[in-house]
Structure formats: structure tokens, C-alpha cells
């Protein structure tokens, strides 16, 4: 394990009622890296995200981010350290406008007392405008988020992630339910984001993974089955066996 890794999971296991969802999983991510995680249903992809973001506490193992042991922290503390998460099902605040959704996500004030007396600064307004442009929602800025299309909600959520200015983004199946054109646009967006931040993408869609053109980790039954370029892993006989059945 080199010391300059950004995220480092080592020998992590977690069991739910006797079912071993994550089994001695070890995984490292370098700063600035984008990694795609693939694997069949039940491979433990979402549980791994839950562990990194503090939603699930592992039974054993260590999760390090910079110099922090994430297993000791809860979700808000981990988010404040600079880890952002996008859920599989887009989760935005539907009763708020797109602009307000982004405002809440902006890095900075988190104490409810401070928010009571906060006024939107010019700098914040500029950042929101930038984000709106990045996620291509400028024309819907004052619409309620609940009225957006499925794809637009996905983008808004990515915009909220960017607003957090995290060092690491965890993105869970971002293109599920998107059209082909939207899928390719999303791949572009993620590559753009990767210019400045590290990204972990969980995805089923192989076309999308190919478009990302990054290192791939295959999870199976809670641990790493294979790692490498998409071509390498897709020619790995164990991977073929897992995906095509035994």
C-alpha cells in the first residue's frame, strides 16, 4: 500500500444476518483516478459505497481516506471530508427549485444556526450559475426539481455533487434509464469532472464503461475478482464464468 493513495479499503468484511455481503475486500484509488466498478447483482457494489460513505459500518477491516479512518465517522462527517455520493435512484429535493437544490449542496455552511442568518453571497450565486451551465439546466433553474425528467434529475444530482466540491465522487449507475445520447453525454460529463476530482463509477452498462476508458474492477460475491482495462477483464476466464454462468 503506497502512502499517497486517496482511498484505501483493506480487508473489509460485513455480514447481514449471516449473509456475507462484503468479503475481505481490498481496493485502492489514487488521487485523480477514475475507476469503474462492475459486477453482477449482489456482488456488493452498493454495500461497498455504503461502507465508504458511513451508511454501513464494516465488521472488520480499515477504510482510509487521506489520513482519516472512515469507519469511525458518520455520513455527514465523511461528506464534509470531501466524499460525494450519487445514488442509483436520483434523489433530489423535489419540493425545491433546481437553484435551491444547488444552493444547499454548495460547500461551506453546514451548521443549522449559521444557515438561519446566511444570505446568498455573490460568489455563491456565480458558482450556482456555473454549475447550471455544467449540468445544462440553466433554463430550468427556477422550476421545482420534482418536475424534471429522469435524466435531468440525474444531472441535477451530479451538479449537487460538484457543488460539494468533493475530492472523491461515488457515482452509482448514473446512466440507468438514460437514452443512448444522454449516456454518451454523461460519460463526457464524468470525464470532464475527472479533470479535477477522483471518481468511482458503479455501472452495468458496458458501452458506458467502454466510453469512460478507465481501469475496471470486477466485484464478485463481495470481493475483487479481477482488475485491469476493460479488454483485460472481459477476457479473464473467471469473469466470463461469473457473467455467463457456470
Amino acid at each position: 500500500m503506497s502512502t499517497d493513495t486517496l482511498l484505501d479499503l483493506s480487508h473489509v468484511s460485513v455480514t447481514f444476518d449471516g449473509f456475507r455481503a462484503i468479503n475481505d475486500l481490498s481496493l485502492s484509488l489514487m488521487p485523480g483516478e477514475m475507476r469503474a466498478i462492475v459486477g453482477p447483482n449482489g456482488a456488493g457494489k452498493t454495500t461497498m459505497m455504503d461502507i465508504i460513505t458511513g451508511k454501513t459500518r464494516p465488521d472488520t477491516g480499515v477504510v482510509r481516506f487521506h489520513d482519516h479512518d472512515l469507519t469511525k465517522l458518520d455520513e455527514p462527517a465523511i461528506a464534509r471530508l470531501g466524499i460525494g455520493r450519487k445514488f442509483q435512484k436520483p434523489t433530489v429535493f423535489e419540493a425545491l427549485t433546481v437553484r435551491d437544490n444547488l444552493l444547499l449542496s454548495l460547500k461551506g455552511l453546514r451548521s443549522p444556526f449559521a444557515l438561519l442568518f446566511a444570505r446568498k453571497t455573490n460568489e455563491e450565486a456565480d458558482r450556482i450559475e456555473n454549475l447550471l451551465r455544467t449540468i445544462r439546466l440553466g433554463s430550468s433553474a427556477d422550476d421545482l426539481a420534482g418536475g424534471l425528467s429522469h435524466g435531468q434529475k440525474q444531472w441535477l444530482e451530479i451538479g449537487m455533487l460538484l457543488g460539494q466540491e468533493p475530492d472523491l465522487l461515488l457515482v452509482d449507475e448514473p446512466v440507468a434509464g438514460m437514452t443512448d445520447a444522454e449516456t454518451m453525454e454523461t460519460a463526457d460529463l464524468l470525464r470532464e469532472i475527472n479533470q479535477t476530482r477522483s471518481v468511482v463509477v458503479v455501472e452495468h452498462d458496458m458501452e458506458f464503461v467502454r466510453a469512460l476508458n478507465v481501469k475496471v474492477t470486477v466485484l464478485h460475491e463481495g470481493s475483487v475478482l479481477a482488475e485491469g482495462t476493460l479488454d483485460q477483464v472481459s477476457n479473464d476466464p473467471r469473469v466470463i464464468e461469473v457473467y455467463l454462468g457456470r
Binding site: T53, D74, E75, P76, A79, F93, L104
Partner: peptide, 10 residues
């Protein structure tokens, strides 16, 4: 969406 706010750091 209470849990979403938690992942935003609130």
C-alpha cells in the same frame, strides 16, 4: 429526503 441531506454533510 432526510438521508440525502446527510450525504451532503448536513
Amino acid at each position: 429526503a432526510e438521508s440525502r441531506t446527510r450525504f451532503l454533510g448536513y
